Every structure is written in structure tokens, then in C-alpha cells.
Computed example of a mutant assay.
Amino acid sequence: MSFVESEERRALRESVAALGAKYGHEYYVRKARAGEETTELWAGAGELGFLSVNLPERYGGGGGGIGDLAAVLEELAAAGSPLLMLVVSPAICGSIIARFGTEAQREYWLRRFADGSAKMAFAITEPDAGSNAHRLTTIGRRDGGGWVLNGRKVFISAVEEADAVMVVGRTADAATGRLRPSLFIVPTDAPGFSRTPIAMEIVSPERQSMLYFDDVRLPGDALVGDEDAGLLQLFTGLNPERIMAAAFATGIARYALDRAVAYAKDRQVWDVPIGAHQGLAHPLARIKIELEQARLMSQKAAWLYDAGDDAAAGEAANMAKYAAAEVAAAAVDQAVQTLGGNGLTTEYGLGTLVGAVRLSRIAPVSREMILNYVAQHSLGLPRSY
């Protein structure tokens, strides 16, 4: 692992930043408040190959790793347009299908992810089980050569944009009858599938939904991977999810810090810029330090994942997500404080980020569950739950 990114990675960041600058935060907020999708930005990213930098070249991707895709998301977020669907479609679903999907699934879905013509949502969370894969009540049962899926999911992102949803359910082990996690691709127009939007106090183009699966009939090839692989397949997607969530958060932190620093340099009180006062300078400096620490941990997690070290990547990805979410929340809060009343005006574009960074501390995995993970797996303490 190098602490200096490659020329290719730096060039990728510059190109993505240039695209992001054409749209920016005003575009993002305008789309969100109008209930519209960020279609133009997504299409532009697809045309330039940014949506698929992590996917195999054989299927139209860039042949890179999750670190490259994380760089794409971070730069777009730093430009004010943090596209949440990048976490889901090419990162979670793309990683799982690339590694465990059939050749037909790879040909169909990865090529469409690559050019931006298709999106896939991801559904694990349930009202009573959260994201505990051992307690999920969405069940897939064999029916001849196919499957029948029943259950419900909650807080599922961007289903309104998606062509299909990768659903984490459970299937019965033929030998023992015990239920184990399994993954299904469910078209959003499948009979028996429905959704209800969840009203949220968050400014985001991607909506949240409650999903219902009522005797949804699926063909046999709707199953992704092997029934026996269970959690292995699931964590192939969840580690990239945490790495991408960290990129989402560090990008927002960069956006907020840049706005605060620019204001602190320009705004003058008593004939000097307010950034000359330690009461503002030190908190911003502390944010910069914590931001770079979070970025380093995120890059380490991506490097470990791309190197195939799933166990070490899991620990690092959790730590990266924790650190990134914490600094994002602190950065937005300090940026608002630095700007004073201007921090909550529409003109400066910081108030719209308050909910987003608060959500980063909750999803896709809460800070408390990450602390549980680190306490148990990194420190060897007794399991607390």
C-alpha cells in the first residue's frame, strides 16, 4: 500500500471533480426539492466511464477496484453532489454479481451498470430485524424450478430509480431445514412487488421506501450465487458498502470544510479575517486533521478489499465508515458555526447537509454496531449482544 495515490487515480479524481463542478450543490438540491432524479449527472458519469471503474473490463467496466469507485463518489460529494446510488448499484450489487453471479447475470447487469442504463437497489433492512441477516423474515421458498418470495423491507434507497432490487432473504437448507441468507434479483415491475415512500426530513434526490413482497414469483436464475455461500456473498457487498459510505461522508466533509475556510478567509470583523482568530482557526484545523485520518483509513480499507483480504478489509471498512461519519458531522456543524447565520441560508448550501451527515452516523451501519464489532473482533472483548 502506498500513501501516495497513483497517477491514474489522481487523474481520475481530477476528471470526476471537473464533471462535478459542472453541476454542483445547487443542481443537487434543486433536483431533490423538485422530487427529480439526478439523471443528467448520472448519464454524464456513465458516458465518461466513472460508474463502472471497479467492474471487470470484460463487461464494459474499467477493471479497477473499489478504491477507484470510492474516489469517484468522494469527488462528486466534494463538489456538492453526493450520489447515494453509487454506493448501491455499482458497489454493492456490482461487486456481488461480478464475484458470484452467473455469466448471464454478469453480461446483463454489469454491462448496464457500466453505461448507466440500469440501476439496482439493495434491500436488507427490515422493520423488526434491522440488518441482522440471521433474523430476517423475508423468505424465498422453492416452487418447482423457481422461487416465491414473501416479506418486507424498510429504509431502502432509490427504488424509484431502480430497474431491480437485490433482496437479502433467507432460504431453507435442504438437509437441515434451517434458514440461511440468500440473495435474489427482483425486477421492480414484478407482480406482487410494491413499495410505499417514507417521508424524510433529508434533502436528497434519492428517496426511502418500504418494500412489500407478496408471493413474488421469480425464475430459478433470480438467485445470485450459491445457496450454501450465505454470509460470504453478503459481505462481499457490505464491505464495499462501508467503504463507499466513508467516501460519501469524507466528500461531504471536504465540501463543508472548503466552504468554511473560504468564508473565514474572506469575512472580516475588526479589520482582520475571522479565520485569524484561534476560536475559529483551531476547530477548522482539527477537522482537517480528522478528515485526513478518515481518508487514510478509507484508502486502507479499499486497498485491503481490492487485495482480496476480506477479513482485514471488514475491520478497516468499519473503522473507516465510523471515522468518516464522525468527521462529516463535525465538519458540517463547524462550517455552519463559522458562517453564523449565513451557514443556514440557501445561498451557502450547508444547511441542506445537516440531515445527510447525521444519517451517515446511522446508516448503512450505526456507530454503535461498529463499536460492538471493534470491541469484539479487534479487542477480543466478550460479545455484548
Rank of each mutant, 00 (worst) to 15 (best):
Q278H: 00
E161P: 01
A317E: 08
G61V: 06
V16Q: 09
A158Q: 14
S95R: 09
N132K: 12
L257N: 06
H25C: 09
D266R: 14
Q337M: 09
Y23L: 08
N132L: 10
L257C: 05
D310G: 00
Y263A: 05
R259M: 13
M369T: 05
V224T: 01
L136E: 06
P240V: 04
E161T: 14
R170N: 02
A98S: 15
R13T: 02
L179D: 02
I274T: 08
R58Q: 13
A249W: 07
Y27G: 05
G144E: 01
L371W: 08
V261Q: 10
A323V: 03
A121M: 12
R141D: 07
A253G: 08
A174W: 15
D143T: 00
I124M: 08
L86R: 04
S52D: 00
A317M: 12
D271S: 15
L211D: 02
N318S: 14
V186T: 01
E292I: 05
R33K: 12
W270Y: 15
I370M: 07
G63R: 04
I243P: 08
L350C: 07
A133I: 14
R58Y: 07
S81M: 10
F184P: 00
A260I: 13
L231W: 13
D221E: 11
R106G: 03
E47R: 15
L110R: 02
S204D: 14
P273A: 10
D128A: 15
R135C: 10
